[in-house]
């Protein structure tokens, strides 16, 4: 391979130089894109081989092809897309509601001592109650309605975003604030140009934590009290011993979690492009 390309080099340097740089350009980023998937893909291959060769009972663990077949069948009946849409909607609305409240209170308490004195103690008390412990109460209040899921995910999402927003606002460099004030920067611009961008890295840490908690809460809430959604699909399948559907539900959650994380990272990279750790040299 190397020798033949070297031989071509001698004869037609301009063409081979072009093609070599071309392959290099394609090969380098694709390697970085492939490597993270090596372990998941190999695990699936081993899993498939184990199932096909009969080492693993399909009663115990269905083969990947069974799971794909189940996914196909449920997509055809329309069940899978419906459940996914319902779960996604619940996750998104819980995240938006809890996240925006957390953001507002985090900013407010970070900026104002009065507001902090008034509400922070309350938040810290509620924070120490595991939100899943509220499930019995929530079922009594809301039944298996959407309200139950919205309430639980909102609470779960609230605390990581609240704490990190608050912390981010409080740790903005005081020297920068003094500098901006000395240049006659007013309150609004002080917030928009100095405090908010300074707090953003910390806020993103909160968002990524919140996304994890969002899925966790939703899965539990859906398996216990729901009539639709991925969690309901899994519990329902368990009753009928449809193990391929149970595994499919878990795979769907994993993909969703990865998607949420990728989105958060992309957003982070975009808004924090000034940050030395996001700059590609």
């Amino acid at each position: 391979m190397t020798t033949s390309s070297a031989a071509i080099d001698l004869r037609r340097p301009e063409v081979s130089a072009g093609s070599r740089s071309h392959t290099k350009r394609v090969a380098v980023p694709s390697l970085a894109a492939v490597v993270p998937w090596l372990i998941p893909v190999s695990l699936i291959c081993i899993w498939q081989a184990g199932s096909s060769l009969g080492f693993v009972s399909t009663q115990f663990l269905p083969s990947p092809t069974d799971v794909i077949a189940a996914a196909y069948a449920l997509t055809m009946t329309g069940e899978l897309p419906t459940h996914i849409a319902v779960s996604f909607q619940r996750a998104a609305s819980g995240f938006l509601l809890g996240g925006s409240l957390a953001f507002v209170f985090g900013l407010l308490n970070g900026l104002s001592r009065t507001s902090e004195l008034l509400t922070d103690t309350t938040f810290q008390m509620i924070r120490n109650v595991p939100n899943l412990a509220l499930i019995p109460l929530v079922i009594l209040w809301f039944g298996v309605d959407e309200g139950a899921k919205l309430f639980l995910t909102s609470i779960g999402v609230f605390f990581p975003i609240y704490i990190n927003t608050f912390h981010g606002v409080r740790t903005v460099d005081a020297q920068l604030i003094e500098m901006a004030r000395s240049y006659g920067i007013g309150r609004l611009n002080l917030f928009l140009k100095v405090i908010l961008p300074g707090a953003l890295p910390s806020i993103f840490v909160g968002v990524r934590f919140a996304l994890g908690i969002m899925w966790l809460t939703l899965i539990v809430a859906e398996t216990i009290a729901a009539k639709s959604g991925i969690g309901y699909m899994a519990m329902n399948a368990r009753e009928f011993m449809l193990i391929d559907v149970v595994v499919l539900s878990i795979v769907v959650y994993a993909l969703f979690g990865k998607l949420a994380d990728v989105t958060a990272r992309a957003l982070e990279r975009r808004t924090l492009s000034w940050h030395p750790s996001y700059q590609k040299v």
Binding site: A180, Y183, K193, W274
Partner: peptide, 18 residues
Amino acid sequence: RLLPWASVLDNVLIGLGD
């Protein structure tokens, strides 16, 4: 005391106030 999240030009603009 430059704002790390603002470009060089935007940092100089701070000097003009709001």
